[in-house]
Write a protein that binds this DNA or RNA. Structure first.
Lengths: 156, 156
DNA sequence: CCTTGAACTCAAGTTCACTTCAACTTGAAC
DNA sequence: GTTCAAGTTGAAGTGAACTTGAGTTCAAGG
């Protein structure tokens, strides 16, 4: 029950839904690990399927590769994750999801009130005034939290 | 009340919170329009502030430039938008926001139940089984709607 | 053995949404 | 009339997350 349980690239790819190239990329980025066959081909442990599922969910929620690497770093590479391990990382996630949900609800609230006012007047509607309000509060303030704002590209 | 009401780049930039370069980019992409001074400098109508506010909100919600262009296309370029105009596009938005909110709540729900099960077993937890489940349902199925999935990059 | 499909590597390309740069030109103020 | 911040253009660069391509090797079935 050792080398027979290892899965080849194709299997991992189709079962995870990721392209082989993406899987290689994740390995290069240190998100997953692979053993090698005699001839140099990758052989994956079953547990990488779990990691890949995590990666997909995380990136769907908007985490970057870097953040995902951090999260996965909290999982023990060698031993099976314990309840406490999952608890730690999922607390982190829960908060992020709550943030996103709240932000979208705020945005929708703003939109609803905008429909109410008809947006005919630049003076009375918070939404159509977002420009002026943003100028006084800094770009994109408070409608959405950092976690949902587009990461301003070349601005690090 | 014609040429005196037009705003220069700097004003638009600071009031909208967008960098001048971004504003030029949006003009090039056809999201906004600008008049020109005798010497070729941009002069903006006040209404572009509203458009820019819309652009910011839309892109925060995850719409692409292309989608935003479509949305803005529904607004009349010449006449002042009517209540009905805004109603049309905001219905569209409301639905999208509802989708996103629901998706995040589903994701969080899944996560919560995962904490409950402790994720010690690959067999019993929907979350840790996401890989296999995804393989049978197609990549990334049903946890998130298309609107929230990362647009698979070079796959058009 | 031979074929064939799956896998390998490494460099380079792609998309999106901008930003940065270099080299000018404008235009409001004094 | 001079000054200089603010504006202009076009081309090139950026970062994230992969994909694509070229050329080569592996490994399982017949």
């Amino acid at each position: 029950m050792d080398s027979k349980d290892l899965l080849p690239m194709g299997e991992i790819s189709s079962r995870s839904g990721f392209a082989a190239s993406a899987i290689r990329y994740y390995e290069a980025e240190g998100l997953i690990e692979a053993h090698r066959s005699g001839g140099g081909q990758r052989r994956f442990e079953r547990s990488v399927l779990r990691r890949l599922a995590f990666i997909r969910a995380a990136s769907n929620v908007g985490l970057t590769i870097e953040e995902i690497r951090d999260e996965l770093g909290r999982l023990p590479g060698n031993r099976t994750p314990t309840k406490a391990d999952w608890h730690r990382i999922s607390r982190h996630w829960g908060a992020r999801l709550d943030d996103q949900i709240a932000a979208l609800q705020r945005l929708k609230g703003g939109l609803d009130s905008c429909i109410g006012c008809g947006c005919l007047s630049l003076r009375s509607c918070a939404f159509s005034n977002a420009g002026d309000w943003a100028a006084s509060q800094g770009p994109g303030a408070q409608l959405l939290p950092d976690s949902l704002r587009k990461p301003h590209p070349t601005k690090r």
